[in-house]
Structure formats: structure tokens, C-alpha cells
């Protein structure tokens, strides 16, 4: 059990927190037709992270976060510029910018000799959840002791506060977020600026993508911005319900994915665990497939079933 609390618990917590913060924000991105914003941001932060690392000369969290935040805001404005200057559709502008920023990050990374430290491209893509350790812990009782909790890895604390911030953001701005996401023109006529709410959402997206990115890698970030909200969207029409469901799905895929990755291979006679970030994303995708097929009202199979019954009558 000691092994579990020292080795598995911090990774589990990290994966689940990342899933939760991204999954909740994803709901609004999905409603706005900006589901790929998470994809874009998780690619463009790479040069920012490497740049922050190069400037600070160490793997400290703050400069890397600032660099990443700067890179994502810069990219969002660049996308907007390309869209307007060339009258080019959003998807293509996003594609042009995020591939370039990612390429820049990759080249900087190889160039800088940052490779050895603990920055490399594979790490950026699928993270290294397993490296989170809590060696100070001895038993489950430590979860109740503040002094012990402070010895949790820095990544976890950062992500914890960002998750709290995300929840606070959604609770405080629930109404304006909802109205601007469903009907921007109506919101503007009510005096709620859809532009500022949109910017706020992009900022929060960048913040949680960046925090999650350095811990779990871009693939899990992309999956979590999309799969839990999309799953919830299959199950309900009501935004508040959708938020609860997506949060639940995010946590569920975080926990089940981690256990499957860490222990699953051994049940089938394997010798090594597989990538936890990958497995969590895969679980989220799997849950979404289930929802798309079997959701009571909008699921493909249930609709087929009801249609047949209707025809038979």
C-alpha cells in the first residue's frame, strides 16, 4: 500500500486534475464550435515552454508557464490576423499557426541542448505522468495531514489551484458564458460582450492547457478538451447537467485509465506498464463511443431502435 501512495497516487491525482480542468472548460469550447482550440493551444505552447526554459536556465514552473501563456496568446492573435488579412477560414489559419509554432518548438528543443534535462518532444506529446512521486508519504493517513500534503510535487499543486480557478471562473461567469456561447448576438444586445467572454475563455483554456500540458502532454489535453464534453453532449440538452456529467466522465476516465495503464498489462501477463496519459485519453474516447452508440435519446442505436418501433406501429 505504501507503494501505491508514494508512486501511483500522485500520478493518479495529476491525471485526474488535468482531465477535470480541461474537461470542464471544453464544454464551452464545444458549444462555440471551437473544439479544436484545445488542440491548437496544446501545440503552440511548446516554443513558449522551451523559450521559458532557455531564458530561466532551469525547469522552474513559473518561467515556463509564462512563456507558454505568452505563446498561446500570441498564436491566438496571429490566427485572428491571418483570418482577417487573407479572408481565410478559421480551420486553415489555425492549422498554419499551430504546426509552425510546434515546428519552432521542436527545432528550439533540439538546438538548445535542453534534450537531456527532462524536456523532449515525446515528453511534450504524451507527457510523463508516471514521474510524479510523493516519497514523503507513508500511509493514507498522510492525506489528512497538511504538512505532508505540502510535500506533494509542485506540478500537482499548480494544477490543483488552476482547477479551482477554472471551477470558480465557470461558477462566477456561468450566465454570461452560457448566453455568449449559445447566441452571441443576443448576448451583445443584452450588454454582455461576447468578445470579452470569448477572450476570457481563451485565456482560461490557455492557462489550464499549459498547466496540464507540462504534466500530462498534449495528447491528453486535446482529448480532455473534447471527449468528456462531447460525451456529455450526447446525454443531455441542459448545460448545467452537461457540465456535471463531463466532470464526472473526466474523473472517471482519469482514474480508470490510470489503473488500466499501471496495472492492466500485468493482468495479461505483460511486464511493463503502458503510457498512462495515452490510456486515460483512450478511456475518454471509449466512453464517448459508448455514449454515441447507446445514449438514451441521441445515441445512434437507440434512435435506430425507436425509429423501427415507430415504423412497426
Amino acid at each position: 500500500m505504501n507503494d501505491f501512495i508514494q508512486l501511483d497516487f500522485p500520478s493518479l491525482l495529476l491525471g485526474t486534475l488535468a482531465a477535470l480542468s480541461c474537461g470542464l472548460l471544453g464544454n464551452f469550447l464545444l458549444l462555440r464550435g471551437q473544439a479544436l482550440m484545445g488542440d491548437t493551444i496544446s501545440h503552440v505552447v511548446l516554443p513558449g515552454i522551451v523559450g521559458g526554459f532557455l531564458l530561466a536556465g532551469s525547469v522552474a514552473a513559473l518561467p515556463m508557464m509564462l512563456g507558454a501563456l505568452f505563446a498561446s496568446l500570441f498564436s491566438v492573435s496571429l490566427i485572428e490576423l491571418i483570418k482577417r488579412a487573407g479572408r481565410i477560414e478559421a480551420g486553415a489559419a489555425m492549422g498554419a499557426v499551430f504546426t509552425t509554432m510546434f515546428a519552432l518548438g521542436v527545432v528550439l528543443l533540439e538546438q538548445s541542448g535542453a534534450r537531456g534535462v527532462h524536456l523532449d518532444v515525446e515528453h511534450a506529446l504524451y507527457g510523463n505522468l508516471e514521474s510524479a512521486l510523493w516519497l514523503e508519504a507513508e500511509s493514507f493517513q498522510d492525506l489528512l495531514s497538511f504538512s505532508k500534503l505540502f510535500s506533494l510535487p509542485e506540478d500537482i499543486w499548480v494544477l490543483f489551484f488552476i482547477t479551482l480557478l477554472v471551477i470558480l471562473f465557470i461558477v462566477v461567469f456561468y450566465k454570461p458564458l452560457m448566453i455568449t456561447s449559445f447566441d452571441a448576438a443576443h448576448a451583445d444586445s443584452l450588454g454582455i460582450s461576447s468578445k470579452w467572454m470569448g477572450l476570457g475563455l481563451v485565456f482560461m483554456t490557455a492557462l489550464s492547457a499549459v498547466a496540464a500540458f507540462s504534466a500530462v502532454g498534449s495528447i491528453l489535453v486535446i482529448a480532455m478538451f473534447i471527449c468528456p464534453p462531447a460525451t456529455a453532449r450526447m446525454l443531455t440538452d441542459k448545460l448545467s447537467t452537461q457540465l456535471w456529467i463531463s466532470g464526472f466522465i473526466a474523473v472517471l476516465s482519469g482514474i480508470s485509465g490510470y489503473f488500466l495503464a499501471a496495472f492492466g498489462p500485468f493482468w495479461f501477463g505483460g511486464q511493463d506498464s503502458v503510457s498512462a496519459a495515452g490510456m486515460i485519453a483512450l478511456m475518454a474516447g471509449f466512453l464517448q463511443v459508448l455514449a454515441m452508440l447507446f445514449a438514451p435519446r441521441y445515441g445512434v442505436l437507440s434512435r435506430l431502435f425507436f425509429k423501427n418501433r415507430f415504423h412497426n406501429q
Binding site: 506529446l125 486535446i222 473534447i226 495515452g278 490510456m279 486515460i280 485519453a281 474516447g285
Partner: peptide, 21 residues
């Protein structure tokens, strides 16, 4: 957009899991 995101992340995640395997 949601469909693209779903497919890219799920397939890529599967690839990563297989790769570590």
C-alpha cells in the same frame, strides 16, 4: 470540429499505448 478532435486524440492515444507496449 468535435469529430476531428475525438478521432485525432483517441487514435493517437491508442497509438501511444501500443507504442509503449
Amino acid at each position: 470540429d468535435a469529430a476531428i478532435g475525438t478521432v485525432l486524440s483517441t487514435f493517437f492515444a491508442l497509438g501511444i499505448v501500443l507504442l509503449t507496449l
